[in-house]
Design a protein around this nucleic acid. Sequence first.
RNA 1: GGCGGGGUGGCCGAGUGGUUAGGCAGAGGUCUGCAAAACCUCUCACAGCGGUUCAAUUCCGCUCCCCGCCUCCA
Length: 465
Amino acid sequence: MRLYNSLSRQVEEVKPVDERTVKMYSCGPTVYRYIHIGNMRSFMLGDLIRRGLRFEGQDVRWIMNITDVGHMTDEVTDTGRDKMELAVDDEGLTPQQIGQKYTDAFLADADLVGIERADLYPRASDHVPEMIEIIQKLLEKGHAYEVDGTVYYDVTTFPQYGKLSGNTLDALRAGHRQDTVADPNKRHPADFALWKKAGPGRLLKWPSPWGDGYPGWHIECSAMSMKHIGERFDIHTGGNDNKFPHHEDEIAQSEGATGQQVVSIWVHGGFLQMGGQKMAKSAQNIRRVTDLRDQGVDPLAYRLLCFATRYRSEMDFNWDALQGANERLTSIRKRMADWSKEPRPEPLSEGAQGFDRRFRDAVADDLDLPQAMVVLNELVSSPAVSGGEKYALLSLWDAVLGLDLMRLAREAWEPSEEINDLVRQRDEARSRKDYAASDAIRRRLIDMGLEVMDTAKGTRVRPSG
RNA sequence: GGCGGGGUGGCCGAGUGGUUAGGCAGAGGUCUGCAAAACCUCUCACAGCGGUUCAAUUCCGCUCCCCGCCUCCA
């Protein structure tokens, strides 16, 4: 599989350092509130990369962090309160309870959109000693300095700073934002906190060599990724907004501490927009996965909708398009139910193999799901491939797509005696040309949630989805 | 101000220097008693202005507009 590496700005082959297993780390959710479908798109990216690699026969170890402390605080002073602490005030729960509540909600929502569970979900609050260890190493190596209980990273000691985002130190100096307040303790405006001194009344704090405090925004990812998949791993994913400063700083930390390249490929997902704006709490345009369900849409239709857009591009969310995806998903599942009853030829035909190759190529080509969907659509309506083969291929491909395409086939729906009776009555009425009666019966069947079709063999019914 | 991504037919969205992306919606047709399902067909799409070229939606320049990051943010 090839992926676009934000660092090199080109598409690269995934070549696992440890030849047996691809190791991937994804920036996960912050758990002081519900996550929305825009966040989900990013998390789906990691899931799709893992599914794509497995499809090629590779083993993958996938880690996704849970952020329950740290990078949710005002950078300069301690007056800006940790968002976790604000949630504690609002909801009357302990930080642990808040974290647990929103972690559970995240996992449940992720399940709904077909994201398979990661191998591990390390929590930031469980890794403070590891973070302190890295900070100490950075101090020893001269990459960091302490001022009154707060430890900063000295960006001037890392000449490659800016290599990921393009925000080099020169550029950062040239284009200063007007509304930022300079921290007088920083030696360089781009320096960032590794460890912050705890202010009075702070709940979430830990003892450290520099006094009570809490970790800075970026250090958790350095600590947890290196602890769980090593100081040299293959893929790191996140949303586009993580590129700077989060990942830029993570590189400076991890590479500063280890003296080597840590991540091979950085993959960044494009944003989900809503009405031309980034979906974000501040824009008040967020939707949860459960909102989709409440609108009568299968959450997996959202997953299908995401496949229309390349993962790196921005995508505009819109209910009509989602509704369309929902229609399409149902229609494919119904066809799958029909095809499942046809014989499946053992060696696939030439034609079917051709479709399979094209599908696999698309997935391997930097996760070109829009192209893969074209192949899928062509297969669905291809007269050259039998229904049995279509079923075989689509159920294979669903390992990557995760759309539960076999749902209706699996449910193996059988009409009840009552339905069979009505079907018989309708066929009799039709043979008598008593259309008033046959239409009345059809109406009843439809009201029972069925789809009614006339075939050469008479009335046929199936669940309408 | 710095860094970066865009403007494609009713909607979502691929893609390409000359040949139909695809899905959804809509229209017509085949089939049907009528529907449904299925299949077929369709509405001269590429922000604007210049330029390069035999040929530009695709390359170059300019203009207009939108979005993201630079502060918490997938």
